[in-house]
Write a protein that binds this DNA or RNA. Structure first.
Lengths: 215, 215
DNA sequence: TCGGTAAGCTGACGGCATGACAGGACAAGT
DNA sequence: ACTTGTCCTGTCATGCCGTCAGCTTACCGA
């Protein structure tokens, strides 16, 4: 499916080549979490990987290209998020649990990949279509599931007609992503992570169902 | 209050100096909205301002320093956000209007300053304390007001005891900021801005009061 | 075993941004 | 005109970028 991995000048990468390529990606990934995106230099990545800058350019057009590659891998892995919402109930106690598990899983996923997600978010916000699509790819599963949930409740008359399912779902997902990005921020604000989660779950539940959860 | 404007080497800037300084800031600001943060170079800013790179370094230690300066100006200006929530009612129809006006004002503010706010957000997410504090400074007024509103409703028994006002307020503010950053994203998602606003207002109202608004 | 071929890597280079400095230009007061 | 302090820029050493030619290594078929 991925086709063949190719170098910039068109050669097909073999075992060894793919290993170096992956090593470069790993090192870049590590650098992104330890220093500002703006300051990540090709030469540093290459040094860290024990190779030369020229090698880097053999596999990636530039730093951004490599970042996209990492993000792509993560997006595939991010399919796990689907399981957090697909086919879950939003009614009664089950609904409260769905909300809690969604918040939990989402925050955990974001924490695990925060460095790369920051860059994707920035790229998307700056209007870069590639990052943009990638962000959608990652969030789409959750977003669609939530949107469906709202639409279903709406068809049963449990949610007001004038609610736009896609808008509400999108806003809630954006909230989760933003809070996850600034988790540390809440801490110095005097809100501990353990306290944060149930409150987020509450907001999600309120947003989807329009009602307070039954706990 | 701002004290005196000083150059990097300690001289006090006079009329002319301050003018060039401001021109550099303006040009930087403009560049930030037209090209990715990562690609903004001192030499480009200087060229655009019709001066030399050396001049830039006379007033700012680096690009980041100048960005902080712009953000600081914006933060002061952002005090206007306070008026959107301070002393407003969250009950009945007035509550619904408060929510709507908050969303409206917030989105507008973000739209006006999106380029610089993106950078501040990134810096904060990357853990830079200076950007971090700045972000708090900008959002604090709204955040505190919302937090107070929840706490007040709570003391009247209108909101559950186990709700953490600061957490809810912070999450809602984060949501507004995130949605504002990705407004274009919602459009390609099939959600128009006009539809987005009332849904956001609904979420805000639900979050603060725990109830659907009376329209 | 032995080339042949393609993959893999690097040294080296021109080009450009950075950041520092010293000195020249300029305005204002005397 | 002269002095003083502000303001700007030419220039330079340094370091990263991105590319190329060319060397080394691995694989493969005869």
């Amino acid at each position: 499916m991925t086709g063949q991995v190719r170098t910039v000048d068109g050669r097909v990468a073999g075992r060894r080549g793919q290993a170096t390529r992956q090593k470069l990606l790993d090192c870049l990934s590590e650098m992104l979490s330890s220093s500002p995106y703006r300051d990540v230099k090709v030469i540093d990545v290459a040094r860290k990987a024990g190779t030369s800058p020229a090698t880097f350019y053999q596999y990636f057009p530039d730093v951004e290209g490599a970042v996209l590659e990492i993000a792509e891998q993560m997006a595939a892995e991010g399919a796990e998020l689907t399981g957090l919402v697909a086919g879950r109930s939003w009614v009664g106690k089950a609904g409260w649990q769905t909300a809690q598990e969604l918040v939990d899983g989402f925050l955990e996923f974001w924490r695990r990949n925060d460095a790369i997600l920051r860059v994707v978010d920035l790229g998307a916000a700056e209007g870069d279509k590639r990052f943009y699509k990638l962000r959608m790819k990652i969030l789409n599963s959750v977003n669609n599931s939530l949107s469906d949930a709202v639409a279903e409740l709406q068809s049963k008359g449990k949610v007001d007609k004038d609610v736009n399912p896609a808008a509400v779902a999108g806003a809630l997902v954006a909230m989760l992503a933003a809070v996850a990005s600034h988790q540390k921020g809440f801490q110095t604000w005097g809100v501990k992570q353990a306290e944060l989660k149930p409150n987020l779950a509450l907001l999600v539940h309120l947003g989807i169902t329009g009602k307070k959860p039954t706990k």
